[in-house]
């Protein structure tokens, strides 16, 4: 029994990556849930909006790097982020003006908007491919580790190393800042409250003199910002490939639905639920089991419930269970 080493191994393989991935999913799911709450449809283009924003962050990062601008041990992408966000916001607002507004004025059925958003997804996906190509892009620079595994091992004398990558720390910190800012905005500001009011009861909001165009615009700005940040953090942490972002759609939707579509708090909880479930089910527990089980008990086997190729199945199963047991989600509204 070696609890300490087991815990460090757990932190290294599950806890830290789970917090990171969960933060990325939560930011993505927040965008989905806000759009669902205010515009009342499931935005299939959200994954590709994330890819679109990230593509521009990468372009700005390259540009900064070519000019020799960096921000020390942090990734240059953080400097490029505001510019990427600006482009993303311009894109989503343009899309709303050219595409979605027409259907909103018509009061089209939500499913029509879902199909329309699939068309937007095509366009964005094509644009990203044309702009930056389909190959894998690494754009993380700065120092690699916040907590170097070697330093950790030397300092603690434990057999197991614990590594915290800079990108992981950046992800969690940025996510916390974003969520705090978003909740402050929704709970404390007049505009934020009017957004909640509009999501809660559209007719009454109109009757109270809340301007729907403004609410919709603010929603897109926030969703675009969150999408760009989520996509960039994911890309920094892993790498950027456009079809991977399409694949992120399922876990993100699962997170939003698990938490309850329309509930921001639910989206965050859902993000971590999905991330940790994926890791718990697809991690190899052999190393951790080795520290806990008595000597000689450890057989050969990876102690892995599902191969990592079936990550998508984990989100899916959770999604299905929620749909069956509690379709309105954990913090379910309507």
């Amino acid at each position: 029994m070696d609890i300490l080493n087991a815990f460090v191994a757990f932190a290294n393989f599950v806890l830290v990556p789970g917090l990171t991935y969960g933060s990325q999913l939560a930011l993505g799911a927040l965008g989905i849930t806000l759009i669902f709450g205010v515009l009342r449809f499931s935005n299939f283009a959200h994954g590709d909006t994330m890819a679109f924003g990230t593509a521009f962050v990468i372009l700005f990062t390259w540009w900064f790097q070519s000019m020799g601008i960096s921000d020390g041990f942090l990734p240059t992408a953080l400097l490029a982020l505001p510019f990427g966000i600006a482009v993303t916001i311009a894109m989503v607002l343009g899309t709303d003006r050219v595409v979605y507004r027409f259907y909103r004025r018509q009061r089209a059925k939500p499913i029509i908007l879902v199909i329309v958003s699939a068309g937007v997804m095509f366009v964005m996906n094509g644009l990203v491919r044309m702009i930056i190509g389909t190959s894998e892009k690494n754009f993380s620079d700065g120092s690699r580790f916040l907590l170097d595994p070697k330093v950790f091992r030397d300092a603690t004398g434990l057999a197991e190393p614990l590594a915290i990558k800079t990108t992981q720390a950046v992800t969690v910190v940025v996510a916390i800042l974003c969520v705090a800012a978003l909740f402050w905005f929704l709970q404390k500001t007049r505009t934020g409250k009017s957004m909640r009011a509009y999501a809660d009861n559209e007719d009454l909001a109109l009757l109270s003199g809340i301007n729907p165009d403004r609410v919709v615009m603010v929603t897109w700005i926030i969703a675009g910002t969150l999408a760009c940040i989520a996509g960039t953090l994911y890309g920094l942490d892993k790498s950027f490939r456009v079809f991977v972002y399409f694949g992120l759609m399922l876990p993100i939707f699962a997170a939003a639905i698990v938490g309850g579509l329309g509930s921001p708090l639910g989206a965050i909880v859902g993000g971590y639920v999905i991330a940790f479930s994926e890791l718990l089910v697809t991690s190899a527990w052999r190393k951790i089991a080795g520290y806990i089980l008595p000597d000689g008990w450890l057989g050969d086997g990876l102690y892995q419930a599902l191969s990592t190729d079936y990550k998508v199945a984990v989100s899916f199963v959770i999604l299905i269970v929620v749909l069956l047991v509690r379709p309105q989600g954990i913090f379910g509204g309507k």
Binding site: R190, K193, R196, D200, N201, L204, A205, I210
Partner: peptide, 13 residues
């Protein structure tokens, strides 16, 4: 009413 908002927020709206 706005069911998900507090009484005070309803009045504010």
């Amino acid at each position: 009413i706005f069911t998900t908002m507090t009484v005070e927020e309803n009045l504010e709206m």
